[in-house]
Amino acid sequence: MSANSNRQENTKQVKNLLADAEFLEEIRRQMIRFATLQLGDSHQAEDAVQEALIGALKNATSFGGRAALRTWIFAILKNKIADTLRHKQRVVNASSLLREEDEDEDFSELFDRKGFWQPDERPVVWGNPEGSLREAHFWRVFEACLDGLPPKQARVFMMREFIELDADEICAAVDLTTSNLHVLLHRARLRLRECLENKWYLQGEKNDELS
């Protein structure tokens, strides 16, 4: 097969995948959730997702199936988000400075003055983490916990765990030092863990209404 017809074949494959309504809907939902978290604005998130999907269709080349395509579409989306954020920064600099201050927390409610767990904050054994993944209530609790994170922590946590970027890539994308990133991820994990424990695992793993 010539290089050209090979390319056409691949393009067709990607277009078929993007025409698969179920696949597209799933990926779109994930993208919008991610973009909203990153941008803090659902209209801008919709726009970024729209543009990323159009970009993916226009430049469809070679992909070894869904996983690779998904990674690639998210890479396009990340660029769109980065562009939008650069524009935004000029406008909302003042309010993002305030946000930085909010995130300067000390966690003294978790640890005592010597740095050991406060007795009532000490992590307990979680009952059935695998089983929880099948419970819709659990996922509502998880989303509420994620939404409760300070924006900057949520952003880097999602980049790390949701898109699975490595530390260097995140530092480059959001202009952080490695030690800043470590601190932000640590805080995000501390908070998320605490939230899941309090709102799910200590509630008998069947809490259906969020307080």
């Binding site: 979680w126 993944l133 819709a136 996922w139 765990e161």
Partner: peptide, 23 residues
């Protein structure tokens, strides 16, 4: 243990597991 669980949870979430959960 929970750090491992948290990573598993988030990756399951990224794969859309929450959409398949039962009410």
């Amino acid at each position: 243990q929970q750090m491992g669980t948290l990573r598993k949870i988030t990756r399951a979430y990224a794969k859309g597991k929450n959409e398949q959960a039962e009410n």
